[in-house]
Nucleic acid binder design. Structure first.
Lengths: 200, 200
DNA sequence: ATCGAGATGTTAGAGCCTCTAACTAAGTTA
DNA sequence: TAACTTAGTTAGAGGCTCTAACATCTCGAT
């Protein structure tokens, strides 16, 4: 199951990618804040100084992992939309479900993606690209040709909702709240309620 | 502005409380993850070993700070309800506003309160007490005598919403979304939309 | 072919951090 | 006031991030 080149004795082959993968695993296992570069090195079988040839510092490595997370999330969003008619409530709710599902599947990564001390340009752009998928759907839903201020405003409460739901699910608060309905239904309901009435 | 006893030469007076206060400041200044016990000690003017007479470990100290946060939040909730007729939409929305306001006033603390690796019984109880304030209002709103499952279910989407909004505000995403309406109005609107219709 | 540059490893170590052990001073109580 | 408890201290082990200096490999130009 090696996805990257093997160590050739001295040089590793593709340490950068493997460090990202290992870090991602560790962030998931141990939690984002407890992650240590040293442990990632031990797992990758390199010295603790090696990562600094590929990443500026610990922060930079974590950022690369977060970036990968955003890319994956964006892909998932696109996949979620496909089965639905563009610009429908169903399409929009599907993205919401994909959002929460991603968070539940990658709790550590998800928290890390939003625990960024200060957003780097690249991370920010990745986030925007991700958000753009929903905004496109909402623009269509509202019958707007492009993502204007009204679309962003309509999207924000939805983002708010799924973002909050993700955190509460990750932290196990949803069980505490004794929900009898599924996450899917909660999202469907909230989407319908929080979106402004459709034009036409 | 000393709230605690002074150092009497050898003994401190009230190191435990001062460490909690200092830690809270640091968490706010530096961010929750970058906090170090050592720095808190430097500020409090004690050796780096001193805290371990009062707290099991770093985690335990942070937990004490989080506990204080929950207590403060609960107080704020109570204060928010006072000006309103109990069991009205306004009372419920007021708690929502207090939630987000607390998060904005104490972003580091707020994040820490919910970034708990594993919830300790005491923290959990404090959280429940906090949540109970809204649930009481919702129970009255729905005309239920006590906080039953239906009440919890009705409350969950609201919690979800203000929780998400808090994070997005703290992380500066709300500005990005170009909201033209105030946080207050967003909460008011979401509360009205997300609550089930009132009985009677 | 080989030589030199650049990329990517290594070891050593400085300077942080958390937490423990052993000691000491101050308060408390019989 | 002696004995016990509480709350400080210093010293240090072991882990972490990151740098400096050195070593090895890759590769393009000659």
């Amino acid at each position: 199951m090696q996805k990257t080149a093997q160590k050739t004795g001295y040089h590793h082959g593709d340490l950068r990618e493997q460090l990202i993968a290992t870090t991602r695993d560790l962030v998931e296992e141990r939690g984002p804040d407890v992650f240590s570069v040293s442990e990632a090195c031990r797992r990758a079988g390199v010295s603790t100084a090696a990562p600094y040839k590929h990443f500026e510092d610990r922060e930079d490595l974590l950022r690369a992992v977060a970036l990968q997370g955003f890319a994956e999330m964006t892909e998932r969003f696109h996949a979620a939309v496909v089965p639905h008619t563009p610009g429908t409530l169903e399409a929009i709710a599907a993205v919401g479900r994909a959002y929460v599902a991603f968070a539940e599947d990658n709790p550590g990564l998800f928290k890390m993606m939003f625990a960024t001390p200060k957003d780097h340009p690249a991370t920010e752009e990745a986030g925007h690209g991700c958000y753009g998928v929903v905004l496109d759907q909402i623009a269509r839903y509202l019958g707007h040709a492009e993502v204007d201020d009204a679309v962003m405003e309509a999207g924000f409460p939805l983002w708010t909702f799924v973002h909050g739901l993700s955190f509460l699910r990750i932290d196990g608060k949803a069980e505490f709240a004794k929900m009898r309905v599924s996450v899917e239904d909660v999202i469907q309901g909230a989407t319908a309620r929080l979106l402004p009435p459709r034009k036409g």
